[in-house]
Design a binder for these strands. Structure first.
Lengths: 233, 233
DNA sequence: GCCTTATCTCAGCAGAGTCTCAGGTTCCTC
DNA sequence: GAGGAACCTGAGACTCTGCTGAGATAAGGC
């Protein structure tokens, strides 16, 4: 009844259909096998039967807290690493202790880039994902997804959180032209409804910080989007 | 009752007959199997019975929003990747999030080239279209739809957005003579009402950029249109 | 609560891109 | 070869996109 997916199995648990939809679609697109449920009870049930590699779990569910789901699974020695989704005002003390286990959390609203990066992190730590490296490079650019360090030609560069997400997404898709919509979708939070011109502002910031010395790597493709590539010699 | 088509099955959903006609004709001509309906209810019905590989779906339908159609199919685990058609002034926040899931959108008025290119993209991503490459070649011409790079004989060529669409259409139909009307329809938006002589201007631009060195590939067929072919030796 | 930092909005500017037009050229028909 | 139609192309106008600095707003740290 439940098909066997190709990639790692992810169980998404949230009672908001909008969130479930956008998250599960993005994950499937990235090659994960996805199942979704809307309550703690169903989550427990499917976790036992389907044995997911990781869960994306809202902390506020209609029937019980997400932490309770985690506690019960742990009690029956059916541990699953969990990426918690929390509201912005969730009790910080509970989220704190999470990053020590194999678990992690993101606060709503989050960007899909963020979610997927953290999910991969968890799977890497638990050994499900072979790909061990958290470092991405392009030309003389280096970016480490664990330490959040970025450097160009050995010179360290300080980036803000948004700048980092933007650069990471570009570096994960080198040379490909990414449209405005793709960038806004992946780098900004899924419910970002504002002016698309933020993007231009951040491109400008990034350029100032990393194209300052050396040949420009961040190119505008007029009428389409942006792309990370080496200037032709 | 519904015939089995050769190519990928596309379900076109729009309540404007003009759009449905022009789109479905273009798709059939490109080897797609096409069915059309004019409302959300019919779309859901046919999607369940006919199992299309992809849907072209207007966001504004008489009985429900296109997003609602997508949501319902998703809810019953009958996901179909969707290319949304939206009015230019559609709420940006809803269109956001589409490029993440495997879905995509074009805003009206669109060019058929654009539509077909994005459709192919979706089918490539979902694995329906075997042809994995985003690169098109003809003679010593190369064109990459992901990076928007074009080169002739290894020498890189810079094209503007319109020049690129025009060349892509020609390269996807090598040796065939494309009429003025076909070119205007596919490369410009379907309701382009302006002077048909733009086409000549752009052909001229293209010639200057890519027939500069090497034998001319872009040929005029007087009274009919243009064609991409090797000059006979 | 205050200060700092990050994020987003806005508006003006510069310039690329698109389209129109007109004069010149090529090709075909008779 | 003359005439006309189709086509080519350079120049210019207009549009529209993208860049950037400055300020408003929100978030985070002390």
């Amino acid at each position: 009844m439940v098909e066997t997916p190709e990639g790692p199995r992810v169980l998404v648990v949230d009672d908001e259909p909008a969130i479930v939809d956008v998250v599960s679609m993005a994950l499937r697109h990235h090659g994960f096998g996805v199942e979704t449920v809307g309550s703690g009870r169903e989550a427990l049930d499917l976790a036992r039967r389907w044995r997911p590699h990781v869960m994306v779990l809202d902390v506020m569910l209609p029937d019980m807290e997400g932490f309770e789901v985690a506690r019960r699974l742990s009690a029956e020695h059916a541990e699953v690493p969990i990426l918690f989704l929390s509201a912005r005002d969730a009790p910080a003390d509970k989220l704190r202790g999470l990053t020590t286990g194999g678990d992690d959390y993101v606060t709503k609203p989050f960007s899909l880039e963020e979610l997927i990066a953290r999910l991969r992190n968890i799977l890497r730590r638990t050994g499900t994902l072979a790909e061990a490296s958290s470092r991405v490079t392009f030309a003389d650019l280096e970016l480490d997804q664990d330490t959040f360090e970025v450097s160009r030609g050995g010179r360290s560069i300080e980036l803000t959180a948004t700048e980092f997400r933007l650069l990471r997404y570009l570096m994960l898709n080198p040379r490909r032209v990414l449209t405005r919509a793709q960038l806004l979708d992946h780098v900004w939070s899924y419910d970002f409804g504002g002016d698309g011109r933020v993007l231009e502002t951040y491109i400008s910031y990034l350029r100032k910080k990393l194209d300052g010395d050396g040949p420009p790597l961040l190119h505008t493709v007029r009428g389409v989007g942006y792309s990370l590539r080496l200037p032709k010699a």
